[in-house]
């Protein structure tokens, strides 16, 4: 059974139609990459899946693990197992990283009828996860993303992902703003999350992340639609030739 099934998805931002009938199917265990030129609708796809206000779905359907995703509010989508790693993670002064993640994890646990973790249990659990990503206690105590470098913010997104253990992770331009070392740390973190029952959707402009996070399928998104699909060799081809072919076709 597919984990995510997007059929003929149409979405507008403001008055403008951005997604114009997008089809995509992900099965558990698969890593898909969506590549495309600027303005093709890559971020709109991520936000539409996560349910952000202002990204209005005007047609089509999205089924997530057998349920109608578009019926749910953003927090329900997250609790059902959808995770969007933000291109620009938001700074939240006044909310400590640990507090934030504890609320997030316990919301999910409640949603699934599981016992909530108390403060101590949670800190233990979180420390283990953070260590894998080279994040120390001091970073966890700081307010969410405040004063973090670009690399630290992306590492923090990866940490959240590993804590929340989603069924589907959507990575929106996760490589942007990273140096090569940070890129490796983040890619390693994501690779550790690869598993037979989890799918990953990597949205990216460049091929570089895919050297470390090797996809099973690569799709080209241009003018709001998937215009070409292939295996990982398609990414290399795009890197070489650029998107000119697809932009002119659109």
């Amino acid at each position: 059974m597919s984990l995510l099934e997007i059929k003929d998805l149409q979405a507008t931002v403001g008055e403008k139609q951005i997604l114009k009938g997008l089809n995509l199917t992900l099965r558990p265990g698969e890593v898909h990459a969506i590549m495309g030129p600027n303005g093709a609708g890559k971020s709109t796809l991520g936000y539409s899946l996560a349910g952000r206000d202002g990204y209005e779905v005007t047609g089509g359907s999205v089924t997530f693990d057998g349920k109608d995703l578009l019926e749910m509010d953003p927090s329900e989508r997250a609790n059902e197992g959808l995770f969007l790693a933000f291109q620009y993670p938001v700074e939240i002064p006044g909310v400590a990283g640990t507090t934030f993640l504890k609320h997030a994890l316990n919301a999910k646990r409640r949603h699934h009828g599981e016992e909530e973790l108390d403060g101590l249990e949670f800190v233990k659990f979180l420390r283990g996860k953070a260590k894998e990503l080279g994040m120390n206690d001091e970073m966890l105590k700081r307010p969410v993303n405040v004063g973090f470098s670009g690399g630290e913010k992306k590492r923090n997104e990866t940490l959240q992902m590993s804590v929340l253990e989603p069924k589907l992770a959507v990575l929106d331009e996760t490589d942007s703003g990273l140096d090569i070392d940070a890129l490796r740390v983040v890619a390693d973190g994501v690779n550790r999350l690869r598993s037979p029952d989890r799918a990953i959707l990597v949205i990216t402009h460049y091929q570089r992340l895919l050297d470390y996070l090797v996809p099973d399928f690569v799709h080209v998104l241009a003018d709001g639609k998937i215009v070409k699909s292939g295996d990982k060799s398609l990414a290399l081809e795009l890197e070489e030739k650029g998107y000119a072919e697809f932009v002119s076709a659109a």
Partner: peptide
């Protein structure tokens, strides 16, 4: 939206942000 995208319901997210603003 960021808080909600991590599973925190709208009401709790609002409360968190109001207190955080003062904290």
């Amino acid at each position: 939206f960021y808080l909600m995208a991590r599973g925190i319901d709208a009401d709790t997210a609002r409360k968190l942000l109001i207190q955080a603003f003062l904290f």
